[in-house]
């Protein structure tokens, strides 16, 4: 039968392991933001080649399951002679995957900006780089904040997949805990509660941001 004691006991070690879940998702979204800007700029650029590469990047990363991407990366890295710790490889894969979604979020936000702003900036003689840095990005980033928080929630859930390649985050830790206590139901439910707590906090943050932006 369901043992409350085991359920409660599981929380401390699992919450401690959840720091890797947060690490992978936060670093993943940070990397995704950086690559996402580049991909977004490529997709909006005048060069047909850059647009093509950007579109291919987004289409591939959104078309292939993250689990397959993770395994692909883990088998690809040794072949091309790159030797990095698994955690780094996992964060890079999650970040690359997130970049495709984030670039689309930003493309939408930039599309919603009034076109007159860019024209006005051009008229007073700003170069493309300056226009991006001082006009487009500051507004697009602020506008897309709620969507980015949503993406972070998705990443927290997606980070459970890096357990497959051996990162000892929340899901992997609960597998180990379930194996040693022989109580999978209690342990996995405790893990689910921790994920839920993280995501409810993030969702509240998202609502707060959305509320602030509406004013």
């Amino acid at each position: 039968m369901f043992s409350i004691q085991t359920f409660l006991d599981a929380f401390v070690p699992l919450a401690w392991a959840a720091r890797y879940t947060l690490l992978v998702s936060c670093l993943g979204i940070a990397l995704g933001l950086v690559i996402g800007v580049v991909v977004c700029a490529m997709r909006l650029s005048g060069s047909r080649l850059a647009r093509g590469i950007g579109a291919l990047w987004v289409s591939f990363l959104r078309g292939v399951p993250l689990l397959v991407q993770l395994l692909l990366m883990f088998y690809l890295l040794p072949v091309i002679g790159i030797d990095v710790p698994p955690l780094v490889a996992a964060v890079v894969t999650v970040g690359i995957c997130a970049s495709a979604y984030i670039s689309e979020i930003w493309r939408g936000a930039i599309g919603a900006l009034p076109g007159g702003q860019t024209e006005a900036a051009q008229a007073i003689g700003m170069g493309p780089a300056t226009i991006w840095r001082r006009i487009i990005l500051p507004q697009a980033v602020v506008m897309s904040l709620p969507a980015l928080v949503n993406e972070l929630i998705l990443l927290v859930k997606a980070s459970s997949l890096v357990s497959v390649v051996g990162i000892l985050e929340l899901t992997r830790a609960s597998q180990a805990q379930a194996a040693t206590t022989f109580r999978p139901l209690e342990v996995y439910l405790a893990a689910a509660c921790i994920y839920l707590a993280i995501n409810l906090c993030l969702a509240a943050l998202g609502r707060w941001l959305e509320h602030r932006m509406a004013i």
């Binding site: 039968m1 369901f2 927290v156 459970s160 999978p184 139901l185 996995y188 689910a192 994920y195 995501n199």
Partner: peptide, 22 residues
């Protein structure tokens, strides 16, 4: 809220490995 706030993998674990307990 609960289903959307938890990873699919963990839901599967609860169902597949935790299910037999109940």
């Amino acid at each position: 809220e609960v289903i959307r706030g938890t990873p699919f993998l963990v839901q599967l674990f609860v169902l597949y490995y935790g299910g037999p307990l109940v």
